[in-house]
């Protein structure tokens, strides 16, 4: 009886694998997990659960594909474009809410003209990308750079982080148009989940670092360390995330470059240059190591 319960719970965990892989391997994996020996265990061990989740992440990352490097690279670029648009939309939304909170209600049309049109176009590009309409997404991303700037130069002149989102995303989306036929597009649910994960990394409350209160600094440090540790645990298995996170760190870097170099924020902010350099190196490392493994495998 307990093995039935255990099997049911293992099958829940196996849902982390792509459906095609699960169809092929679920029974076999359950057979291996349950083993021959009678068990009174009702819950999967933490070790087995972690191993299954990392195994599933590796499969999502293209480990079983005929060309793992191609899957890693092309799907990483696709996820990077999605993540950067989602981050731009989120920052833009936050700025619009803030604008309304601080006097924008007296002239709502100005807020909508300065930021609203841009926000709608970025969200439209993101929706098109999620719907796998790559050409439409490319057109909308380019339009999100050009059209709002023709109506209001607010974002352009201030060089706000969200302004850079379609600028960074457009070349990635356009590059995605040349995705080889044998590289499948990223499954939608998986792409959304990966994007949410990258957004969560950016939402780690690191503001406590700037406060004088030591306990706030300790809490912020603990949150950052825990967030990065979780991200790396996931991203070292599904290495597409290492590629996808790099463009999102470009937003903070470009904003600080255009903002004021004399403040030193470019080198101090966690979402600016140092993180971008580390992310770019890790992404390059992921591609090189996957390529080497592909040539020799095992």
């Amino acid at each position: 009886m307990s093995s039935d319960v255990l099997e049911k719970r293992y099958r829940m965990l196996l849902r982390a694998y792509p459906a095609a892989y699960r169809r092929e391997r679920a029974d076999e994996l359950i057979d291996t997990l349950i083993g021959d020996e009678p068990t009174t265990r009702r819950w999967p061990s933490l070790r087995q659960a972690a191993s299954l989740i990392r195994g599933a992440l590796r499969v999502h990352g293209g480990s079983t594909a005929d060309r793992p490097t191609a899957v890693l690279l092309w799907q990483g670029i696709h996820l990077g474009a999605m993540a950067v648009l989602a981050l731009g939309a989120l920052i833009g939304l936050d700025d619009i809410v803030e604008a309304f909170q601080f006097g924008g209600l007296s002239d709502p049309m100005a807020v909508l003209r300065d930021q609203g049109i841009f926000e709608v176009m970025v969200i439209a590009a993101l929706v098109a990308l999620v719907a796998d309409r790559t050409r439409t997404a490319a057109v909308l991303a380019v339009a999100a750079v050009v059209v709002p700037s023709m109506i209001s130069q607010y974002l352009l002149l201030n060089g706000l982080p969200q302004f850079w989102a379609p600028v960074v995303a457009a070349p990635l989306i356009i590059a995605g148009l040349w995705r080889p036929a044998d590289v499948p597009s990223t499954p939608r649910a998986n792409a959304v989940l990966a994007t949410v994960g990258i957004l969560a990394l950016h939402l780690i409350p690191a503001g406590g670092f700037r406060r004088v209160d030591v306990s706030a600094q300790i809490v912020a440090a603990a949150m950052v360390i825990a967030g990065i540790a979780v991200f790396l645990w996931v991203a070292t298995a599904d290495q597409r995330l290492l590629i996808a996170v790099a463009p999102t760190l470009l937003l903070g870097t470009l904003y600080q470059l255009g903002n004021d170099l004399s403040t030193g924020e470019l080198l101090r902010r966690p979402d600016a240059l140092p993180s971008l350099v580390v992310a770019a190196l890790m992404a390059a490392g992921a591609v090189v190591s996957t390529r080497m493994r592909q040539r020799t495998r095992a």
Binding site: L29, T32, S51, L52, R54, G55, S63, R293, R297, A298
Partner: peptide, 18 residues
């Protein structure tokens, strides 16, 4: 080896034809 790790190894070895 935990099961997830075993099948990652098996997938790689199958892909390599070993």
């Amino acid at each position: 080896l935990a099961a997830g790790s075993l099948y990652s190894v098996i997938d790689r070895l199958l892909g390599e034809g070993l």
